[in-house]
Every structure is written in C-alpha cells, then in structure tokens.
Simulated scan of single mutants.
Amino acid sequence: MIHFAIQDHGLGQNLPALVDLLSDDECSIDVSFDGNDEALNEVRQSLSGRTASLTIRRSMSVSWSSWASAQVILDSMVDALSLPEWSYFMNLSGSCLPLLSPQDMRERLASEACQGRIGFCTAYRLARPVCWISSQAPAAPSSHGLETVQGRAQMLVDPSLRDLVESQTLKPPQNIGQRIGLVYTETGKNSYSVRPLSPTELCSRVKFAAVHPIHYGRSWMILHRSIVEWLVTSSILTRVQEFLKDCFCPDEMLFPMTLFSHENPFLEAMSSDNLRYRQGGARRLDLADLPALAQAQRHLLARKVFPVDYPIAADLIRRHQLSIA
C-alpha cells in the first residue's frame, strides 16, 4: 500500500484529476492545502466523495524556499505514521502528474525492493568549497538594506554584501554554497533579510559541515515505512535541522543530508534517483513528451503540469492505462 502526501500551494485546480489518478483500494491520500478559507472549502467540495481513503487539511503558510516547506513534509510523515497498513510514503505537489497507475507503482517498488532499494531521494554531494561569508559587525538597520529579487523571493541584503548584489553574483537559488554561507531570515511571505554569518555562526556551520558532507537535491521522495519511522525520530534529523535553520531553500538539503548521512541505518538501501521525470524539476512539462514518458514506464511521476494543461495530460494518461490493461 502507498500513502500519497500531496502538498498544494495554489488554488487546487489539479487536485480532482490528480486524486482520481491515484485512487484505488490499496492507497491512502492526504492533501495538505496552503490557501484561504474560501479556496479550502472549494477544494473540499471538489474532492468530496471521490475516495474513502482521502483526508484534506490546511497547511501552514509556505514561503518559496522557506523552512516551512520542509516542515510541511515532516508533518505529513508524522501524520502518515498514525495510519496502519501502508508500506511506502510518496510526497508530491499539486502540479505532479502520475505516469503509472497505483498498481503499476506498487509493482515497480516491489521490483526495486528485490534489488535492495527501498528509499528514493535525489541527492548530489556538493563538490565545490563553500564560500563562507562572516562579519563581526552587527547587521545594519533594515532601512539601509539593498533590495534584490531571487526567483520568487524578495531579499533585503545587508550593505556589507553590496559587492555581491551590484555584481549580480548573489544567486542562492543556483549557488548551493551561498545557501549555507550566509544567514537568511524570513521576514514575510516570500521575503527574507540576508546578512553575513557571525563568527560564532561561522564556527558552528564549518564544524558541522566538516563531519557531515553537504548534500542537496529535491524534496520529493519515496520512502519505505521503516525509513520514515527512523527518520522522524532520528537525532541526525534534529542536528541537520539546526544546521539549516537560517539557510536558503533548506527543504532541498534537509532530506538529502539526513537520508544520505552515514548515520542512516538504511543508507545502503537508498537510491539517489527519486523516480520522477527530470528528478521532479520545476520546469513546465511539455505535453508532447507525455506519450513517450507513459510508454517507457521509467518514471512514476512528472512535473510541473499547469492547470491549463492538466485535463489533457490526465486524459492522456488514463487512455494509456486503459490501452495496456
């Protein structure tokens, strides 16, 4: 049995078709929805009666690349463990498209387990040295900060980092070393202040990174129940959380660093392939690619599928599944 944990931070337009594609007698589905009361009520109505194994709950408000992204996933794991029977936990977003039926997914995971793989999380080891930036001077008043936009994040940067801003080399979405080499404090929805590390913070981060190699990747995972049970109670998770608490985009490092730590008793059973097309990257999925993806049965899921494309994409997958049934 698979437990699907869906995190949706939009308006939920894709959820009815997504839930239909994931529903069968051996699956449970949890939807964590980040939206206002009106949108949440619309989601509840649109999903009403679709499957008995469905739960819908409000998510905490999530900023892009914030710690809340990781916390929502951890919360969904803890909630899932209160349910019996499921063997695999699979998290996905509301813009994900299942490429296989739940039955085919179970068969694929059983085949992977026969080869010793029961955990799937994209992880790369950081090869370049981190450019740690530290200062003994206190942070400047916010009125003196330099404004910049990184992806969907508005950033107010300490004047001591002016050279990085003016040379346009401050790029934490792309530069993994900058994600951990500075301090990022969430100040509002999709808003952050950025400053250098203090000497004490620098010492703490360098010391931790010397023992625990920096891994980064995606926050999309498929984990056997035994791994989830270990993960949510592990001391290494707590220590990695402390290390990443003021970093940028921590969800893309928390799970790779914890799951690929030498302290993970299931390390030998982990795969760095999360079984998603393009590892679950954020680019818009080209509908022209779908027939070949569905036919290959190499990946379990793909993303992103925008609401305008989702009905067509879901119908294509349904027709393909019927053709091979």
Rank of each mutant, 00 (worst) to 15 (best):
G10A: 03
S32L: 14
L259K: 07
G94Q: 08
L164G: 00
W86F: 14
R106K: 15
T55N: 14
L285N: 09
V157K: 00
L170Q: 01
R283E: 12
Y216L: 00
A282K: 15
M155H: 06
C114A: 10
S142T: 13
P265K: 08
R125D: 01
L293H: 12
T187K: 00
P256Q: 13
V19D: 08
S323H: 09
Y184A: 09
V149L: 09
L100Y: 13
I176V: 15
A282T: 12
R195V: 09
S28N: 06
M60W: 00
D163P: 00
Y192G: 06
A140V: 13
D75S: 11
A282Y: 06
S59Y: 02
E186V: 04
I118G: 01
T122K: 10
G151Q: 01
Q103D: 14
I236C: 10
L109Q: 05
M1C: 14
A137Q: 15
S61H: 10
V240E: 02
L285H: 07
S323W: 06
P98Q: 11
H320V: 07
L267M: 06
I56R: 00
E186F: 03
C114I: 04
Q321M: 15
R179C: 05
T238Q: 13
L197P: 00
G280H: 06
L267N: 03
N14G: 09
R284L: 09
S134L: 03
S134F: 05
F243K: 08
R303A: 08
S160N: 02
S167V: 03
F89T: 03
Q279R: 14
F306C: 05
S66C: 07
F260D: 05
L301Y: 02
E26S: 09
H212G: 04
A325T: 11
E201I: 07
R162T: 12
Y88T: 04
